[in-house]
């Protein structure tokens, strides 16, 4: 059964990858930049879901680690403009976000439920306040521009960002996204992932069978935060400009929104959610001044009517159409 499931998933992934790689042939450049945004945010949504789905704690401050990754790139460019290469930028965003999430996570994992959420929220706001107030080091609320980097020694001078975004960078984003998805899949299916779920289901019992609950939750926190950091790093080049608002609670809330929109009970749900959210928000903003009515109204309806998110809804529908067979969950 597992084997069958695994192979069907592998097939699905392969198909999805082929579709993604073929998109530049059919989509307009503008939509490619949106897909890029969606894919880079999807990495973060996967990261958040590791905590939400598998560790059973809700972070309402994951913007902080996204910001850590993005600002690692920004500050690298600000202070070492001569060494601004893509590979170094990625390493910096991974390293800095891992460090920050290890530090913040260390204090957060000692709590669960609403206290965990409140603490993560407060830490994100602390990060926000520092990024905004340290004007001379971080550019304050103006943020930092992210120019085009060199790429393994290749200079991209003369190339418009636009050409870069719809050209080589698209494939880079797809590659990083695919790698991140596979890593996360491996994590949740590893013994560590199983143990993590045990801590979620029953903390005391997990402790009894020898799982060091807080330690495990902390590891999960760091992995999750690092995914966010990577996401922030990748996204920063797409957007070209970063501001402290990505560390604010509103953005952190939007991350949770993405995950729930896609459906957090299914591994791929957050990816779908990040993609849908990117489109929903942008088209709402461009379409009407009252975009918050649309984005907020969608959220309220989602929570009330479709708690399993889009993928959950589809899976439920599929299960209903084929009575007697369970959906491929996990």
């Amino acid at each position: 059964m597992t084997n069958y499931l695994f192979s069907s998933r592998a097939l699905g992934y392969l198909l999805a990858l082929i579709v993604l790689l073929l998109l530049p042939q059919v989509l307009s450049p503008y939509h490619l930049t949106l897909v890029e945004t969606g894919l880079s945010l999807a990495i973060m949504a996967l990261g958040l879901n590791l905590l939400l789905r598998y560790a059973g704690v809700l972070s309402f401050g994951h913007g902080a680690y996204f910001a850590a990754g993005a600002y690692a790139v920004g500050l690298l460019n600000m202070y070492f403009p001569d060494n601004f290469s893509f590979e170094l930028a990625m390493l910096a965003s991974l390293g800095v976000s891992a460090l920050v999430s290890a530090l913040f996570g260390f204090v957060c994992v000692r709590h669960t439920r609403i206290f965990f959420s409140i603490l993560t929220l407060a830490l994100a706001m602390l990060m926000f306040a520092i990024l905004e107030k340290a004007y001379h080091f971080t550019g304050g609320s103006d943020g930092i521009r992210i120019p085009l980097p060199t790429f393994f020694g290749i200079e991209l001078t003369g190339m418009r960002r636009f050409q870069f975004l719809v050209g080589p960078y698209y494939y880079i984003v797809v590659g990083i996204f695919a790698a991140a998805t596979l890593v996360m899949l491996a994590v949740v299916n590893s013994p560590f992932g199983k143990a993590l779920q045990a801590t979620r289901d029953n903390e005391v019992r997990a402790e009894m069978v020898g799982i060091r609950v807080k330690r495990f939750r902390w590891y999960a926190f760091v992995i999750s935060g690092t995914f966010c950091g990577l996401s922030g790093g990748v996204w920063s080049f797409v957007n070209g400009h970063i501001t402290p608002e990505i560390s604010g609670w509103v953005f952190s809330g939007e991350i949770v929104y993405m995950v729930l929109l896609g459906g957090f009970m299914i591994f791929e749900g957050p990816i779908v959610g990040a993609m849908l959210f990117t489109y929903l928000r942008l088209y709402a903003v461009a379409w009407t001044e009252y975009w918050m009515l649309i984005v907020g109204g969608t959220l309220v309806l989602l929570v009330l009517l479709l708690p399993g998110g889009v993928t959950g809804g589809i899976a439920g529908l599929a299960a209903r159409l084929r009575p007697g067979r369970g959906g491929g969950r996990g």
Binding site: L58, L260, F264, V295, G296
Partner: peptide, 13 residues
């Protein structure tokens, strides 16, 4: 997560 998100949605509304 639903409790928090619904108030977030209400805020936007």
């Amino acid at each position: 997560e639903y409790q928090l998100l619904i108030t977030f949605g209400i805020l936007m509304l």
